[in-house]
Design a protein around this nucleic acid. Structure first.
Lengths: 400, 400
DNA sequence: TCATCTTGGTACTGACAATGAACGAACCCT
DNA sequence: AGGGTTCGTTCATTGTCAGTACCAAGATGA
């Protein structure tokens, strides 16, 4: 049974203090350069409370003071920014094509990154290698002197959110892996939060969380690679990742688009992945596992069969986006993953279909913003790092 | 643009007090019969704090004391329950087949209900009639002496959550209706919260919120009637309704199940509603608008054409449920709406398909609970009343 | 029967966070 | 130079929760 027995939140004065500190931090994170007075107005706190909170956050290295703002008749306010010098988070993604590691600042800027090209073997060996690479990353000079808030790992498959355990990663051949438990023995000195999540969900989280200024209410990240997955984040405080009971939320590659269609590796028929995914495109064009899919296709784009295959896949992708629109209706859709590199022959039919049909129901002209990320190499790893930060800011940590 | 500028929550001492009061109330709401000591343990508050909070909630009429519990070695605790005598909420649904009104208690029990069979005409006339019926309901003896917390209205179509405005109700022929603004002039004495939401979303909320004991983390309500819609609720505190940017979340009737299929009234092709919905079944069997669909079909269940039509519709419904499972993965699915009354010929194929395919991806034997509601007449109206209660408990009201 | 044990609930004091008003700081304008 | 305005801090006050002590009410056992 799925019974979160989490009693309704209650708290003491300490809790209230932390709540207000993290509210202040959130405000500055979202709109860098605010003054104490701005925060007091927006958060409905008194100047005194904000002043105290800002002082403690400055002392603990979360914030830094910036320039004086323009005066508008009186004493000018002092701009406040996140202090990117004192803390850092680590994020990593285990993917079919290798390990991707990042270290990043509170603002989401990459301090260092590393892409190790390899095909992961067993979980144990992969964990050991990843640990080694993480050690190297932490030893790099840009990281020096920073306090590490924790480590987030993004994995390509549904993760049962309670344990957490990676239930299934078809492209790695892994099942029921508690990856963090394999990793932690190799990283004894790692302090802070440990996070493990699905790559599309981590990516979605990062894309929303590291945004400043105009922040969408919700965001879906669609990861189009060997398989197709998605992650949805809703912009409450903190943004909430929809994971579902068994971590199956966002498994849009296995929604049925063509009842009675081709068999999918999951055993069902007509799944979206049979129409659009790295493996189905491989199968349609007879490209061997050993070859890099993108590199194999790019020189063949002029071939009619390739164009037809990609156009059909693109239309299926467009249908998938439309179905997302009518199921979750996110404020913004972000499209990433290796298939994006195939460019217009795949994406044009997808976007054309989506844009042509998304407004039929309401008859409006408003288009849901859809952003395509050309290079999504470190997006999921960075998102996992974002989850670490959010967990520290909003969780039970004592660092704030 | 979709920018919720809602600053991150911060608060003062008053806010903290309210938070703890509402936490106590929530606990008792979820598991009636708790003692002060139980609450203190579960909510991590001291006995003193809980004692004070309970006292004020008793005085304000939210709680009542019940029987003494069995002693287990010491002084027996006093059970606490919601006080169903002092407050009440109103809920109403405007549907194609009529107006449904309820008055209900804090526990979700119906004090009174009324079903006015009619086909709604213009929004203005409907609002006036509804107001009149609500007045009658409030005048009924069971309602007497209760303080009304507010009124919730459920409507059959996507609602833009910001305004809120009913964007489109194809089955009523309404567009861009601010129904609450039409209603409020006719109900000058109505105090409290005003809520307006989509019927499937209200229903989902009520099904989750009025549950006691084992509460699922998330729930999807699928409303199968003239059209097909759904609502998703996630069990945070308070449960969060997924509405989406334009209120299109849950418009699963317009997800494409059959690319290039039949034209739907929305202008797209192959929407789920072209395969399973009241209107598509009508069309397939040549049943006129004037006839009641269910009454027309039930005597004809033995006909082969009817059976075939319902089986195909059932399979489409099963596919829809499967796609929901792989997109949102709710902890529980509740199926309601008038089509449920068609019974096994429609539902058996749906459930068979869903159950046969839902576990393929993970290879587990765990079945997501799917509950079928035979009589969903007042489900949405009751859910709208639940939204009123939640809004009072968790919102900025001063009643707690 | 009565003292003792155990648990439930309340009263009082102290700790502590936010408030509110007053004040100093820094800039603008005339 | 001086008044007006806005920013940020200081300090006494207020209000809430924690902790302890205490009372209440039943169980247990001699």
């Amino acid at each position: 049974m799925s019974t979160s027995f989490q009693p309704h939140r209650a708290g003491d004065l300490h809790f209230l203090k932390r709540l207000n500190r993290s509210a202040i931090l959130e405000q500055i994170r979202r709109t860098p350069g605010l003054t104490r007075a701005d925060i007091a107005t927006q958060a409905q706190l008194t100047k005194a409370t904000v002043g105290g909170g800002v002082q403690s956050l400055l002392k603990q290295g979360w914030l830094r003071e910036g320039e004086l703002q323009k005066s508008n008749g009186g004493r000018p306010g002092r701009s406040l920014y996140l202090n990117d010098q004192h803390y850092a988070m680590l994020g990593a993604e285990v993917g079919v094509h290798g390990l991707r590691l990042v270290a990043c600042t509170l603002s989401g800027e990459l301090l260092a990154s590393h892409h190790e090209h390899l095909v992961p073997t067993t979980p144990e060996v992969t964990a050991e290698l990843l640990a080694e690479l993480l050690q190297t990353l932490m030893a790099s000079p840009v990281f020096a002197g920073r306090h590490c808030l924790g480590l987030g790992i993004a994995l390509p498959g549904p993760i049962d959110p309670t344990t957490p355990v990676l239930r299934r990663a078809p492209n790695l051949g892994w099942r029921d892996i508690r990856f963090l438990e394999l990793l932690s023995p190799h990283l004894p000195q790692m302090t802070g939060v440990w996070i493990m999540d699905n790559e599309a969900k981590s990516a979605a989280f990062g894309e929303l969380y590291f945004r400043t200024g105009q922040i969408p209410d919700s965001l879906v990240y669609v990861s189009a690679g060997t398989g197709i997955g998605s992650g949805m984040v809703e912009g409450s405080h903190p943004p909430l990742i929809s994971r579902g009971l068994q971590g199956l939320a966002g498994e849009i590659g296995h929604t049925v688009l063509q009842p009675g269609g081709l068999y999918c590796h999951c055993g069902n028929r007509g799944c979206a992945e049979t129409l659009v995914s790295g493996w189905s495109i491989r199968a349609a064009l007879g490209i061997a596992e050993e070859e890099n899919l993108i590199e194999a296709i790019l020189p063949r784009l002029h071939e009619e069969q390739v164009q037809l295959t990609l156009r059909r896949a693109g239309e299926a992708l467009g249908t998938l986006l439309l179905n997302l629109h009518h199921t979750q209706n996110p404020s913004e859709i972000v499209l990433g993953g290796s298939l994006v590199q195939l460019g217009a022959p795949l994406l044009d039919p997808a976007l054309a279909f989506f844009n042509a049909h998304q407004n039929r129901l309401l008859g409006t002209r408003h288009q849901v913003p859809l952003r395509v990320i050309e290079d999504s190499t470190f997006i999921a790893a960075r998102g996992a790092a974002a989850q670490v930060l959010a967990s520290v800011i909003h969780g039970p940590s004592d660092l704030i």
